[in-house]
Each structure stands twice: as structure tokens, then as C-alpha cells.
Amino acid sequence: MTNLLLLQVLNGVQFGILLFLVAAGLTLIFGIMDLINLAHGVLYMVGAYLTATFTALTGDFFLGLALALPAALVFGIVLERLVFRQLYDRDHLEQVLATFGLILVLNEGVLMIWGAAPISVPIPEILSGSIPLVGPLRYPVFRIVIIAAGLLTALGLWFLVSRTRVGMLLRAGASNAPMVSALGVDVKRLFMLVFGLGAMLAGFAGAMVAPILSVEPGMGNNVLILTFVVIVIGGIGSIRGAFVAALLVGLVDTVGRTFGPILLQKVLDPSAASQTGRTLAPMLIYIMMAIVLFARPSGLFPKKGGA
């Protein structure tokens, strides 16, 4: 039982880390440019497809990843110039409409280019296999790599935002863009970079899941909703909030799914417990979000002051 709990906690953390990678970019873009980007999940999908393609071309996952990341960055910047740049000063609902349209275009585009069938990315040899944990339980190496990569990214982002000059500009740009602009900073370019960075982070998440998940058109849609849950629970614009909320969502979903029914069996008879557990399991994170927002209407780490 304890072993299982340990394993589930690890799994929850790993799932949370993945959500964080996608959510970090979304919350940055949302917090700094005040842009609701529904197409963020699509960037995650594009990252996975680019990785799959470059891995197949080069025959090596790491080379594929190294090529896919700049490609995702470029893709993000191109999208920014073509579409998003013109959406910054629009109201949120127009942004929703336009980015919803973009989802349709990109999902269908991926379907046309790569076909409807899911495609495969093999796990690189040195990261395959599993290591013993406790007792008979083992844990896949690749998942440990995902956790490590996510933690490093989180650390890097924290450093970038709170310890560098670019980060300072970002924070300033978020609270008062015209002022920063008046001080001679090219806000347009700053926004473009942030958007590209966000796209690359989402693409990185897509690349990391490509070997363990099915790479298919529309794979970004479910992730999109979960990431919105994450950034809203965390408080929009807060990287720290996104990190905490992502882990929370990952853990509640993974651990709750397994141990919810077990706990329910203590108070209900087995068949009722199983039925209730089955009904509640998919709702868990939504229930959690409703509770969090009920108690803290602006999320766990609300931005002070606002803009």
C-alpha cells in the first residue's frame, strides 16, 4: 500500500510537471500580454509532431529534439507576427474567437500533412528501461528524465524572470507596458520573444511526451483544458502559481483516481463505492478547481495590483 502510494505520488508529480511545461508558457502570455490563447495546446501538438518528424529524419531522438525546439520557436514567432500581434489590444472574447479558429486550422493542417493515424517516436536506447524502486516496483527511466527536465525548466524560468534584466522588463511590461515603452524598450520585440518562448516551452512538453504518448491530431485539446485549469488555480500570470497548481492537479488526478475508491470502500459497500468512485474520478480536478476558486476567487497566487 505504501509502495503503491509512493509510486502514485511519483506518477502524479511527473504528470504535474508535464502540465507545468505547457502551463508556464500560457500563463506568461496571459499574464504579460493579457492574451487568452486557446491555440496554446496546438503548439504542444506541433512540438510533438516536429520531434517525431526530425527524429525519424535523423534517426536520433536527441538530434530530433535539438532541431524541433528552434523550429517550435520559429513557428511561434511566425504565428505571433501573422495573427497574435493584432490580438493584443482586442477584448478577450475576440481573442477566444480567433484562437479557436486557429485551433481548427492547425489541427486540420496537421491531419493533412501527417495523416490521421497516430505516429510513433521510439524511446532513445539509453533512456529506456526502468530502475528498481522498492520491493518489486520499478520506475521507467524516461519518466524520471521528464521530471528532471521539468524541474530544470522551472528553475531556469524562475531565474530568468526574477534575476535577469529581461525578467525585470517582463515584469515591468506586464504591469505597465506603455511606461516601459516610453523608457525606450521595444515592447513589441519583447512580446514577440515571450510568445516564442511560450511556444517553445509548449513544444518542449510535446517533444518530451512524444515517446510515451500517442502523437495524433487533436492531442492538444485535452491538454489545453487541463492547462487552463492549472493557470486559473495558480493565479493567472504567476509562474510559481502554475508550478504549484500543476503539481496539485497532477497529484489529485493520479492519486485520487487510485485511492478514492479505496477510501470510499471504508464508508460505502463495495459496489456503491465502485460506482461512486467511477462517477467522481473524472470530476475530481474540476471539483478541486471549483473549491479553490470558491475559497480564493483569484487563484492561489493572485497577482498583486493587477493592471
Partner: peptide, 15 residues
Amino acid sequence: HWHIVFGALLVLIVL
């Protein structure tokens, strides 16, 4: 592949 046209129209309408 009509979704691609539909989506593009939505984007254009907003822009």
C-alpha cells in the same frame, strides 16, 4: 478538410 477553411474564416473575421 473544411475545418481549415472554417477556422481561417473565423480568424479573418476577428482580424
